[in-house]
Structure formats: structure tokens, C-alpha cells
Amino acid sequence: MSLAALRQQLAELVEGTRPALPGLPTGFAALDAVLPDHGLPRGRLTEIAGTPGSGRTTIARQLVATTLHAGWWVAYIDASRTLAARDWAALGAHDSLWVVRPDTPQRGAWCADVLLRSGAFGLVILDGAPALSREIAVRLVRLARASDAAFVLLAPDNQHAGVAGALQLRVQRARAKRTTEPLDLTARLEGQVRAPASPPAPAPMSPRRLLISVEKGGPPARVEVPCAADESRHAARGVRENPQIPDRRGVARRDRNKRGARAGGAGERAIRRGDVALG
């Protein structure tokens, strides 16, 4: 038997005994339960699709937090440069989190290439990059497979990389019952509604629940996960004022005077248009 044949046999043996890699937990137990590897598959592409505002970033942040907590290195490519540092600061204490912000969204795929090729990261997330061509997507998946990394692509709805074996998840906001009475716009248009005597209570935002569907790469399933609303602004520092009371802040007064002098900025036009439409 030749040496090459022996090597081949050994390689097959080693490959055959290689244990199946467990998935990376997503941080949502309900979602982990329906995913094939009980988490995001490693060495494969996971596409998380959804409209802007659907909750993709919240899912991604939970995923990053869970992966960092498990001791993995994580790279997040913010190709659109729209992540807010304040929301990610709690995770920034980890040594093993890198956020890569390329100068143009087109460079996002190149960054993913470098990060996956290094083999140092357990999770690489590409967010906000333009649609990947099939060739580039296949190459990135190959690199992810070589480094056993979970490669996650955050993409708009209906923008799929078209790679075989990819796991496709779709995120959307679950419809919630309205907690406030609908606005009677007709009445306001007719001028029948007067300004309230007391300051109106702020309308609570709709409670958030995210609906995640497994569309491809696993058994079709749909799970609903909770998501806390960001009430920190209004709860902690918000000053709810009666819009009837004039703004007496010094800076605002100074700015208003300037605006008056200019008489016709974009904001003024907007207000006037609002008056015409609804007043």
C-alpha cells in the first residue's frame, strides 16, 4: 500500500471520527430549541433577514452577548456605520469583541474575508453590506467552514446570498394589541378637538415581541421572543411638558430668534405645512 493511500485512509478515519460541532447558543431558548444544532450552526452561513426596524439588530446583539459569555471571540462588521455605541458598551468590556467599521459598505465583505481567514473568531457578523455575489458568499462560507466559525449575515428581506446549506431566519415584529385609543384624526382636521387642559400623558409604545421564523436550513418553525422597550430616555431624564407652554430654554430662545431673523428655514416650512394639512 502506498504512502498516499495510507494518508488518504487516515484522513478519512480522522474526518469520520470528528465530533459534530455544537451550535452557538443564540440566547433565546425557544429559538435554540427549534434550530437543528440547538444554536447557530458553526462552519455555515446564517442569514437573518428582516425589514429595518424588525429587530434584527436586537437579535444580533443578544447573539453577540451570549457568544461572548461562552468565551468565544466575536467580530461584528458594521458596514453601514449605524450602530449606536451606547447600546453596545456593556459588551465592550469583553476583550474578545471587535467591531469593524469599514469606510464604505462595499468593504464589508473584504473585512469578513480577513476575519474568517484568521480563524480566530467563533462568530463573525456582517451587517449592512450590499448584497453579496454568489462567488463571494461561497468563498466566505468556505472560510467559515475552515475555521469552524458561525458566519451571520444581516440582510434586508428577500436578499439572500443563495448559498446551499445556509440557515435562513426571518425576523418581524409580532403584532400587538393597541393599548391606546386610536387618534381621531377626522375630528382634529375639523378643528373639533381642543387642546387638553392638562398635559397629555405620553402614549406608551407598543410592547415589543419579535417573531423569528426558520425559513430554510432547518425544520420550518416560528418562535416568538420578548424584547424590552428602551424606556431609559423618557423614564430617566424625560421632561414631559405641555406643548402649550412656550419653551423658555436659553439656547432654544436664542435659536428661535435666529430662526425668526431668517424667516423661512426647512423646519419652519414643515410646521407651516403641518398647519395647513391638519389645522
Binding site: 453577540v64 449605524t82 424590552a228 428602551d230
Partner: peptide, 26 residues
């Protein structure tokens, strides 16, 4: 300030974009 990971996440434009808004009298 510490935000739990499950809180809804904000995405910020690098520079705020001017928009036209239709507003109520209030």
C-alpha cells in the same frame, strides 16, 4: 448606564438627516 442585551437597539445615522414632517397644531 447599563442596558440589558434584550433591550431594543438603536441605530444612529452618522449625521442626522433633514426630513420633512407633517405635524399637528400641537
Amino acid at each position: 448606564v447599563n442596558r440589558p442585551p434584550s433591550t431594543v437597539t438603536l441605530r444612529l445615522l452618522e449625521s442626522p438627516e433633514p426630513v420633512t414632517v407633517v405635524a399637528s397644531p400641537q
